[in-house]
Write a protein that binds this DNA or RNA. Structure first.
Length: 401
DNA sequence: TCTGGGGTCCTAGGACCC
DNA sequence: TCTGGGGTCCTAGGACCC
């Protein structure tokens, strides 16, 4: 049986939502109709474009451009900071509205989801008219616009929502693939990024049509197992299911770009501590333990590297994560100046699988965990900022004892 | 005042085991 | 008296996504 899949995507999500936030706070202008971007803090070396208005897009400003280059393209550019907690509210409102029509939605990111229309078609009728109705209801109730793409699978639905914007409904049915998708540059295909595009173009594969008709054996030499799925996608074929039950995350990470390059272990320690605390808090919220701890470094040449360790017993406290990350850091840092530091937890488990070692005092361990549970529960109840680290030094002392 | 942060999935090579 | 082979786990890096 043929499926009908929707992909619903908020137009310029962060910028649209910030526009509402500003209007709520008495702004006279709607930044959606101006030369505006949402951008990071340049002084903190986070100066990139997170979202742009359509006017900016016309000037060639792209997401992830440096603000420096964006300003060159548009000297009168206005830059606004991101407001993630407000974005989360808007996102929740959007998914709640969509769920009121069907629980079968798969959330891809803060501003987009798939909806399997196949099962609710009998209730709501023609998919295209329903999509228009849904899009208009979102605009009316939530005051921002979306694009809705409709296809027989996730890939075509996703590609369709990316056609002309904003505030549009597009279909990409099987028979429309040659006309609507084949002429696009190969890099527009979902799953074909910068590196693959460069390689494909070198092989004279420039459009999605070129890729759709490419020889699998030939491409296999360059892309290995990815060659098959790339060709399938180019033909508009995909059989992934819409997965509505949100699956648990596979890992938890937290990283931070430093305001200047760090060159000493003393500078690094409090950062690792605070990263440890953040990931431990996330872990606590998910009631999980981690078997793998990794430390990530981006050096001042932008080279990323990481070092990880698999533990016999899964851990979950700040102290434990901090101790492991200190060890990992010391093992692999080659003293290159550091631009970014991160900690990632992997191989998460429901249980600690903890076996008390012969040489450990179990009571000490228990006390530490119980204290942290109290702290994290307070954070959950009253907000993350309720308990603040007094000074990194002091807390560090506590944890290192 | 140049380049974020949080994810997922895949691959290659080495260790280890039978 | 030249060095098997298959499976699994672990690590590091890379590509891609929003």
């Amino acid at each position: 049986m043929k499926r009908i899949i929707f992909h619903i995507d908020v137009n310029n999500a962060f910028l649209s939502w910030s526009a509402l936030d500003l209007l709520n706070h008495g702004s006279k202008i709607d930044i959606r109709n101006t030369y505006a971007v949402i951008g990071g803090d340049e002084k903190a070396r986070r100066g990139i474009v997170l979202a742009k208005s359509n006017l900016c897009k016309k000037l060639g400003i792209q997401t992830a451009d440096t603000l420096y280059s964006a300003r060159k393209k548009c000297p009168s550019l206005k830059i606004y900071p991101a407001n993630y907690s407000f974005y989360k509210q808007k996102s929740d409102q959007l998914f709640k509205l969509i769920r009121s029509y069907s629980p079968d939605i798969e959330i891809l990111s803060i501003d987009e989801c798939f909806l399997d229309y196949t099962k609710v078609r009998k209730l709501y009728g023609d998919p295209v008219s329903f999509a228009y109705q849904l899009k208009d209801q979102i605009k009316k109730q939530l005051k921002f616009t979306v694009n809705i793409g409709i296809g027989e699978n996730k890939l075509t639905a996703k590609m369709a929502s990316d056609f002309e914007k904003p505030d549009k409904v597009h279909t990409l049915w099987e028979e429309e693939v040659p006309k609507k998708m084949f002429p696009l540059p190969v890099g527009d295909l979902y799953g074909v990024g910068k590196k693959s595009t460069e390689k494909l173009v070198r092989l004279q594969i420039k459009t999605i049509e070129d890729l759709a008709h490419a020889d699998l054996n030939f491409l296999y030499k360059y892309f290995k197992n990815n060659a098959y799925s790339m060709i399938e996608a180019a033909n508009g074929r995909n059989n992934e299911e819409v997965i509505s039950d949100s699956t648990d995350p596979k890992g938890i990470s937290n990283s931070t770009t430093l305001a200047y390059d760090y060159t000493s272990f003393e500078e690094v320690r409090p950062i690792l501590l605070s990263l440890s605390e953040n990931v431990a808090y996330e872990l606590h919220k998910q009631k999980k333990y981690a078997y793998v701890v990794a430390v990530q470094i981006k050096d001042n040449f932008f080279k990323m590297s990481s070092h990880q360790m698999t533990l016999t017993n899964a851990i979950n406290t700040t102290k434990e994560i901090y101790e492991v990350s200190l060890k990992l850091f010391q093992e692999f840092w080659d003293e290159t100046p550091i631009r970014l530091l991160g900690i990632r937890l992997d191989h998460l488990s429901e249980k600690p699988a903890y076996q008390v070692s012969l040489f450990e005092k179990p009571s000490e361990k228990k006390e530490n965990k119980e204290l942290e549970n109290v702290i994290f529960d307070l954070k959950n109840k009253y907000g993350k900022e309720i308990i603040k680290v007094a000074t990194p030094k002091k807390v560090e002392k506590k944890y290192l004892k």
